[in-house]
Design a protein around this nucleic acid. Structure first.
Length: 977
RNA sequence: GCCGAAGUGGCGGAAUUGGCAGACGCGACGGAUUCAAAAUCCGUUUCCCGCAAGGGAGUGAGGGUUCGAGUCCCUCCUUCGGCACCA
């Protein structure tokens, strides 16, 4: 509900067309016209009206998920922006691909279906119909012929097909690309072991593989979840249910193979830096070393990964994750009970729950000792205890660490709790650990210190190697190695790091380790392989059969699509919290469907379905050629719509020319889609290494939420606004507190675009969304501001149309002075709007058009050709109004939609004024203003300025020391005061 | 805790390369029109002092660079977003 403030006339005058501005009638009239004439049809290469001489622009919105709640005003923000760009590009002579479709599989639809007892196919269809109706009401120029949903069998046939391409590929590290599985070289020792061994080897190298992995099992949702779908509190993002770690056999996609390329190729993309950074952080590449520690009196060695091999001399203990396979082997008898108890407790909870709870570090000693390879043979300091602690994660690196409490805050905290020794191995740059401290060194240390420290304590503490005591934590910054090794180590057979800066010490020790076979340089990523199966009904079935012998048999392409079985009961098997029995996917209940007999053998279908991300991983490719039943996209259409050239003539790395959506998909969707795209690229199915060349994140639209004294939220229908702007509860008159919040049902602050369209029209909604502020900023929706842009549309209407007669207004003149003042204003407006659209600054483009209309009212006259050019530049923003004005202005000469008109040009000579007003400053302060010729030279301007009484008064007899003149902008006279 | 973005009138925001702070819109105030109101049209509107002419202050706070800083640098505060034992 939009509070009706002053009851605009739009609603009242909807019926009497003729002369009044009637958004509703214009909307119906022109939307029918566009549909009938296929105005926004984008012909593909090969279609008769395709014009290959035009450049292409692929302008795409994030695939919406058609929720049951329908659109809210946040959706059309990005859609309006891309629509303006799409319309503008067409008028600039581009072939524009601008499309819309539905990401319709997934958990929310299924949850909703379960709650209402209706089949998800039914509710999905209904939700799509609502979204389509709401979007069409806003007059977006999509080529609706290309619309599809991920739930269409004709679409997910190809989603399954792409899955099979991934399944049938392996990653060739040498050539850094995916290759067909048939080209995988089989090592002779595997081949020697027979067909079964070869099969297992091949399966283990596929980019889609089955693995027994600890997964996030959510009993309440009856499914496993990807790490990304679990909150930092260890609960499900959807529904906030508890999540547990369970080892389960699951489909995984080997996205980690692409970690480096996914990170590197970001450099080439025109994306917001913040998104690139988030992706880089998510991929989390780190360089370090893998080091082998022998276990004292034990054949096994402990492999650890560290980014700080330079601190090896500071390792005073080791930690292994509770799930580490060596734990059972190395734990000594007298520690067994405590260790087993600790590990059992840790594995019960998910990793995420574990980390969330852990305020204080916990752990137990295994009784075993490791041997640090950097110390000389027989040095007692080499022998360090091995602990088990849950602050070390099995899933990162090797699941084991060397603990350097002097150089790592986590190790420091643990060492403090467990009373383990701590030594300094790095000192701040500029501090010499051996000498007596001078003032400069003391300064550096005191700046680091947590608490004030008396000067005389510094030197002794440093000598004793207790820098950490002074600063109250580990020293983690850059600096130089110290005590590495300590002075008393005399052996020649050690690696000397003392005095080296961190980066050099790392290099030296890594080489040293490598020489002795004790370690090697290593790279690690935070990114994990993508958990790809869900125990759910409403998703794409995975097209794989399981043979009686465990063999994995992909379906043939001719067997696709593998459609979902019709089921009455599609609910997941939900479990109680403590229930640890295996989840059973709903598809298992479709007995006839689940079993296939082939060549006398009985095969079981894969019962898991794909996650929601699958369908949105490649939809942008399908839009290029959505009718194709032979291929996921024709090579010709893919090449035409996806390949653009840069200014320097090289092909762009990414195909979509503008990809618009919210920042909430900054990592997951965009990373997954990039991964699929790269696999398709490696296999030769697409022409660009990246899917999206330019990305833009629109900001979130938030709204005021009103709370009463008890903290209860009230919707706009219960509220009245006083003249001073405060909101009061209509029933009681209680003053409500207002705060800008995310729109949500519970806060009762959701604005429905239908209401805005009904009251002010689609053009006003579009215009307001663009006028609110910069597209990428988060902005509050203010219902009071909507009438402002509505008034502008009305003023524009009345400037051109006589409200009484419906003919052209008396302002519209034919034939006048060719360069009248309004002509200059129009050229400035065209320039401003053009440049602003190019940089997606729609708010300032609109204010420029408002200024033009104000100017036209001021001079009370506008030439017909001026009105026509103005209508063209306004038309991408307010298409319904402008179609009508265009038709009325053209009269008998009208030939069709304004959207087919070429974009008007501006004359550079007319956008700069001959005379300009500039400020005159004295010592940088503005003292006076004056008019000058725009190209006047400095002496002229200066003498004119000195003639101004205010200036001469201010300067008096002081001498002018310096004159700064910025031509046409300002003059600054510097005098000694 | 770490990383990132942002703080400008009563409100949304503008200032594109270091060069007139507050464009445009909302709200408010005044006027015209009207029997009256709505709507419309025309003005005023950063704050403080002043009847006025005029003067002073001013872009989260403090410091710096510069003839000149909303814009660049340093320190801090606040808000929003992301990550969160990743060794």
């Amino acid at each position: 509900m939009i509070p009706r403030l002053h009851g605009p006339r739009a609603g009242a005058r909807d019926s009497d067309m003729g002369g009044a501005y009637s958004p509703k009638e214009l909307r119906e009239k022109w939307q029918a016209y566009w549909e009938k004439n296929e105005t926004f049809r984008a012909p593909n290469p090969g279609e008769p009206d395709f014009d290959p001489s035009r450049p292409k622009a692929y302008i795409l919105d994030f695939f919406p998920y058609p929720s049951g709640a329908g659109l809210h005003v946040g959706h059309p923000e990005g859609y309006t922006a891309t629509d303006i760009i799409a319309r503008y590009r067409r008028m600039r002579g581009f072939n524009v691909l601008h499309t819309m479709g539905w990401d319709a599989f997934g958990l929310p639809a299924e949850q909703h279906a379960i709650e209402t007892g209706r089949h998800p196919a039914v509710t999905t269809e209904r939700n799509i119909a609502t979204f389509r109706r709401q979007l069409k009401a806003l007059g977006f120029s999509y080529d609706w012929r290309r619309e599809f949903a991920t739930t269409d069998a004709a679409y997910y046939k190809w989603t399954q097909w792409i899955f099979l391409q991934i399944f049938n590929s392996w990653y060739d590290d040498e050539h850094r690309k995916a290759r067909p599985i048939g080209e995988l070289p089989i090592p002779p020792e595997i081949a020697a072991r027979g067909e079964k061994a070869v099969g297992a080897y091949v399966d283990s190298r596929r980019l889609a593989y089955l693995a027994e992995v600890p997964v996030n099992w959510c009993p309440a949702l009856g499914t496993v979840l990807a790490n990304e779908e679990v909150t930092s509190e260890g609960r499900s993002e959807r529904g906030d249910h508890p999540v547990y770690k369970r080892p389960l056999k699951q489909w995984m996609l080997r996205i980690t193979q692409y970690a480096d390329r996914l990170a590197e190729d970001l450099d080439e993309l025109d994306w917001p830096e913040s998104v690139k950074l988030m992706q880089r952080n998510w991929i989390g590449r780190s360089e370090g070393a893998q080091v082998r520690f022998a276990i004292d009196g034990h054949p096994d060695a402990l492999e650890i990964y560290t980014t700080r091999p330079d601190t090896l001399y500071g390792a005073t203990y080791m930690v292994v994750a509770p799930e580490h396979p060596l734990v059972r082997k190395i734990t000594t008898a007298d520690h067994r009970a405590a260790v087993e108890q600790y590990c059992a407790a840790a594995t019960q909870r998910s990793e995420l729950a574990r980390t969330a709870e852990a305020k204080e570090k916990t752990g137990v000693f295994t009784g075993a000792y490791a041997v640090n390879p950097v110390w000389p043979e027989g040095d007692a300091r080499a022998r360090i205890p091995v602990w088990v602690a849950d602050y070390v994660l099995m899933s990162y690196g090797t699941g084991a660490i060397m603990a350097v409490p002097g150089g790592d805050t986590r190790d420091y905290e643990f060492a403090k709790v467990m009373n383990l020794p701590i030594v300094d191995v790095v000192y701040p740059e500029g501090v010499d650990p051996k000498g007596s401290l001078d003032d400069r060194e003391a300064q550096i240390i005191l700046r680091l210190a947590a608490k004030p420290v008396a000067r005389e304590f510094l030197a002794p503490a440093m000598k004793a190697g207790r820098l950490f005591d002074l600063i109250g934590t580990a020293f983690v910054d850059d600096g130089r190695a110290a005590n590495s090794p300590p002075a008393d180590v005399k052996s020649a057979d050690v690696c000397h790091l003392n005095g080296l800066p961190v980066f050099e010490a790392k290099r030296k020790i890594t080489a040293w380790l490598e020489e002795r076979g004790a370690g090697r340089a290593a790279v690690n990523y935070k990114l994990r392989d993508w958990l790809f199966s869900r125990q759910r009904y409403w998703g794409e079935p995975i097209p794989i059969l399981h043979g009686p012998d465990g063999a994995l048999v992909p379906l043939e392409e001719s067997e696709l699509p593998l459609t979902l079985p019709e089921m009455d009961d599609f609910r997941p098997t939900m479990r109680d919290e403590g229930d640890s029995s295996m989840p059973e996917p709903p598809l298992g209940r479709a007995r006839d469907w689940a079993t296939v007999t082939r060549g006398g053998k009985s095969y079981k279908r894969e019962l898991n379905t794909m996650p929601q991300w699958a369908g949105s991983c490649w939809y942008y490719l399908r839009f290029c050629d959505p009718w194709n039943d032979k291929r996921f996209v024709s090579a010709e259409a893919e090449r035409y719509w996806m390949v653009s050239l840069r200014k320097d003539g090289r092909p762009h790395t990414g195909g979509v020319d503008l990809y618009m959506g919210g920042a909430e998909h900054a990592v997951l969707h965009l990373l997954y889609a990039r991964f699929w795209h790269k696999v398709l690229y490696d296999l030769g199915y697409v022409s660009t290494p990246e899917p999206f060349g330019k990305l833009f994140n629109q900001g979130m639209i938030r709204a005021f939420a009103y709370k009463d004294a008890r903290g209860v939220n009230h919707g706009y229908d219960e509220i009245e606004f006083r003249d001073d702007g405060t909101a009061v509860l209509r029933e009681t008159g209680e003053v409500l507190s207002a705060a800008v919040e995310k729109m949500s049902k519970s806060l009762k602050n959701v604005i429905n675009p239908d209401d805005v369209v009904a009251e002010y029209g689609a053009d006003a909604l579009r215009l307001y969304e663009m006028f609110m502020g910069p597209l990428d900023a988060s902005k509050p929706w203010n219902p009071r501001d909507v009438p402002g842009v509505f008034r502008f549309l009305q003023r524009t209407w009345r400037l051109i149309v006589n409200e009484d007669t419906g003919g052209l207004s008396s302002f519209v003149a034919v034939g006048a002075d060719p360069v009248d003042p309004l002509e200059r204003a129009l050229h400035k407006t065209i320039q401003k709007v053009t440049l602003d659209i190019e940089r997606m600054a729609f708010n300032t483009a609109i204010s420029a058009m408002m200024e033009f209309v104000n100017e036209a009212y001021r001079v009370k006259s506008i030439r017909k050709d001026q009105a026509e050019r103005f209508v063209i530049v306004l038309s991408p923003f307010a298409p319904h109004l402008c179609e009508e004005l265009w038709q009325r202005l053209r009269g008998a000469a009208w030939t069709g939609s304004v959207s087919k008109e070429p974009w008007p040009a501006w004359d550079e000579k007319l956008v700069v004024d001959d005379e300009v007003e500039i400020p005159v400053q004295v010592n940088g302060k503005v003292v006076a203003r004056m008019m000058i010729a725009k190209d006047a030279d400095e002496p002229t301007v200066k003498s004119a300025a000195l003639a101004l009484p205010k200036i001469s008064e201010r300067i008096g007899d002081a001498a002018i020391q310096k004159t700064i003149y910025v031509p046409g902008r300002m003059l600054n006279l510097v005098v000694r005061s």
